[in-house]
């Protein structure tokens, strides 16, 4: 388990060294404590199975995180394939009809109370940065899972659009609409949390 560049795998210390980090990585992305714990366990066990392939070019933590990331994407893929089975429900969950008026002559205009006010979404001090992190997590938890997956890959993992489309099996047009709908909800949610 040693390698020529000095990085070593020490599985007996994985839980104490990387347990919290990987758990945090997982729970932000799957929004379920039990599922996140299972993912951490599966990651460590997959790491043990693949330890002979560890080349030592990255740190243990980076290597384990890349395994976990693949597992999270597998969960996203399952969500997207099951979405096709309940398309009506999906459309209802993630449409942007909650934000705009539907009656003429104001069709497409912001609905009362759903448009933005001038309150800033940005934190001012260090204390508010911690608050912001908490608020972002709360708001992501409130997103429909299909929107959350695309949004997290874009905004937290900073994946490019081609990669997201490929991993989730969606078209670029679908992705742009999903990101738009996720941003609508995130903006609304963050504004409400800051105001309250």
């Amino acid at each position: 388990m040693a390698d020529p560049e000095g990085h070593m795998l020490e599985p007996q210390h994985w839980v104490e060294r990387y347990g919290d980090y990987l758990f945090n990585f997982a729970i932000v992305r799957v929004n379920d404590r039990e599922k996140a714990e299972d993912l951490v366990q599966e990651t460590f066990l997959a790491g043990l199975k693949a330890k002979d392939r560890f080349m030592g070019k990255s740190t243990e933590r980076t290597w384990l995180t890349s395994i976990l990331k693949r597992k999270v994407i597998d969960i996203y893929r399952k969500q997207y394939s099951s979405r096709e089975l309940s398309l009506d429900l999906y459309e209802q969950d993630v449409s942007d009809g909650d934000f705009y008026r539907s009656e003429d002559p104001f069709k497409g205009h912001w609905m009362d109370g759903k448009g933005p006010n001038s309150y800033s979404l940005l934190p001012e001090g260090e204390m508010e940065q911690e608050e912001l992190a908490r608020f972002i997590q709360l708001c992501i938890e409130g997103l429909p899972p299909q929107l959350a997956a695309a949004f997290i890959m874009k905004m937290i993992d900073e994946e490019d659009s081609d990669t997201i489309c490929k991993e989730l099996g969606i078209t670029p047009s679908n992705l742009w609409v999903m990101l738009h709908r996720a941003r609508l909800r995130m903006r609304d949610c963050l504004e409400n949390l800051w105001m309250n």
């Binding site: 945090n24 932000v28 979404l121 940005l122 934190p123 912001l132 992190a133 972002i136 905004m155």
Partner: peptide, 21 residues
Amino acid sequence: LNQSFEVYRHHCSHESCEHHL
């Protein structure tokens, strides 16, 4: 919102996010 996520990514890259196993 985009700037908020820059803050968030920086904040959470230092293991300071609040979730623990």
